[in-house]
Design a protein around this nucleic acid. Structure first.
Lengths: 345, 345
DNA sequence: CGCATTCTCCAAACCGCTTTGGATGCGGGA
DNA sequence: TCCCGCATCCAAAGCGGTTTGGAGAATGCG
């Protein structure tokens, strides 16, 4: 059932039916009701493609999942972010289109999505330092919002991020206040922006207490269970092992927990752990009492908000780039405690 | 840059340019090369919406993520499945559109996606018993492939699934052969099709050895870390606790591992564990030696294959429904061992 | 050389919707 | 009574492609 047929069945012109359905005033109220009723009865939905061809708006937002060709990993927080963004899109009548691409062809995909008119805007995931995607998107003139930031980007852009530096600074201070001096950092890949900021917060806190950061206690890898495990194993085997760990995500924290258990170390007593918690729906940090002391911020909420921001930018393309910076809260759980007197084991 | 402009810049008609780019034979080879070169130089990409309006094909596939309104959880295996499917779509020039909806409005979304012509086909995720989506999609005539199956569906349909019943039957047999008699099942929600089949494989194996399934050893819940933990805690507190567990996913298996550690039970010695392993990219089951003995099947590979199947169905809509049934392999890891003589603890 | 093909290319219709620019009929003010 | 303005509706021109139905030139054949 298309517009023309619906109009014919009502003895009206397509023009009038279109206007009736889209709420234009040039149509008698009685007629409008008749049209709406008929549309409902016939299960009429305007064809998306025709509509967006006519209006010039795709009513769709693109999300590009980059797969680095070496480590073919899907970002585990991606699903929850998408879920949040999806809620916003659904309310606003937008569709979400997803592309999974290796980073080699990422630039091409952006150009494509824009040139083919598939989407009205884009959410940029997992920004890296000096991320080339930002100048690229600015150049081709496709509205976008970055989830995170990109250190060293010169063009202004819109973003939503948490205060990674400050939250890891606070977490490190928290551990220092508990008497820990050998504090390890299990962080994300070193070129990821969030990892850079977290490390700088960590280093800053150490330096403020006159502690030189020890490269042997700083690990950069992917946010997998295995990475958390092996990083912890290696560090615990050092002659002077850490008494506390700072971890960038619940997933490696779980691997770290495994390593601790294997070493007969009790979390919160022998070794303290603080992790960042994205509040992934399938990985809650305990039910009532948090298992891990954690810097916490809902990535799903971030998805909702970033999507909202992008829709507003699309609605008013002229206005200046906006940004939102959230503070992560520090939830004290059972994984932290005073530094042991003589070190673990 | 659109077709008309490109044509004008070449002194050709839009017809000829379109044909040249789409490989039709009615155009001189020399002209074709000239057109292709110009298209490349001007970064020309045909407008998706106009193209699909003209051809009637959306060149897009829909994935609907159902969020049950009570537990607002994102299926953790979803991201990897999507990544696999995305690879197939990218190769075939299809886009992927995602909708996140509460199950209350799922039916409406399917009708919408079809009526608005947004997609050419749909992948159905997380099928339940007697899943209403299957007759619905069949009725509205939208091609679809189910990832999994739906027990009790009367209309024929295409699907790709693993042999859940057999793999859990084999896993249970494996534990029985090791001497275990009190074997617990930590399964998915009882109305999920995969959970039903896994339970039936488990029950079947027990019955074949003359063991009556004990409802107290059968847990049905969501595939979260917390569920695995609390189910294990509860069962281990029984007067006659299980000596072995069968778990439906790595994520609750990790929660289960936490419960075991808390109870000072060594996995593989005091308590045996077999889990299903979807090979999630961020949750590898150990590096060389698998940590968990596991029934294993790549959900990402499933995504690739299901997408492929759907594209073939769209290309040849008349042909009979197809189906693929994969056997999961049983990987023996370190989490299983002979039943302890007198039970744990 | 004449005619039928074959090669190339083009004009125009169409996909389903929006939107501009009227057309028509009615009531009200001068 | 006449004209104007308003309310209501419609015809037709896009949006950017594909595709049908030729047209004109070059080629093949007798």
């Amino acid at each position: 059932m298309n517009l023309k047929e619906l109009a014919a069945s009502l003895g009206l012109s397509p023009t009038t039916v279109s206007r009736a359905l889209n709420g234009y005033p040039e149509v008698r109220e009685e007629t409008r009701l008749r049209v709406i009723e008929a549309a409902r009865r016939h299960n009429y939905r305007p064809n998306t493609r025709a509509k967006s061809l006519a209006t010039g708006r795709a009513m769709a937002i693109g999300h590009v999942i980059p797969l680095s060709s070496r480590h073919e990993m899907v970002n585990p927080i991606f699903a929850d972010f998408i879920a949040g963004a999806g809620e916003t899109y659904a309310q606003a009548g937008y569709d979400m289109v997803l592309s999974v691409v290796s980073d080699a062809e990422e630039a091409r995909i952006y150009r494509d999505l824009h040139a083919r008119g598939t989407v009205d805007g884009i959410i940029v995931h997992a920004p890296r330092a000096e991320d080339p995607r930002i100048p690229l998107l600015a150049e081709i003139g496709l509205p976008f919002v970055v989830h995170g930031r990109a250190t060293g980007a010169s063009t202004p852009y819109s973003w939503l991020d948490i205060n990674n530096r400050r939250s890891f600074r606070r977490a490190t201070d928290f551990l220092l206040d508990l008497g820990h001096r050998r504090i390890a950092l299990v962080n994300g890949l070193e070129w990821m922006d969030y990892a850079i900021r977290r490390r700088s917060g960590y280093v800053e806190a150490l330096r403020a207490r006159g502690i030189a950061p020890d490269p042997k206690l700083m690990h950069a890898g992917e946010m997998t269970e295995g990475q958390g495990y092996s990083a912890a194993r290696a560090m615990l085997a050092l002659p002077d092992p850490p008494t506390a760990f700072l971890v960038s995500s619940m997933i490696p924290a779980i691997g770290l927990r495994r390593a601790l258990w294997e070493g007969d170390l009790v979390m919160g007593r022998d070794v303290s752990v603080i992790t960042h918690d994205d509040e992934l729906s399938y990985l809650r940090n305990g039910e009532e009492v948090p298992i891990f002391t954690a810097t916490r911020s809902s990535v799903r909420e971030a998805g909702r908000e970033a999507a909202q921001m992008l829709l507003e930018i699309i609605a008013a393309p002229a206005c200046a780039p906006r940004s939102i910076l959230w503070e992560a809260e520090l939830m004290v759980g059972e994984s932290t405690g005073p530094a042991p007197r003589k070190g673990p084991a």
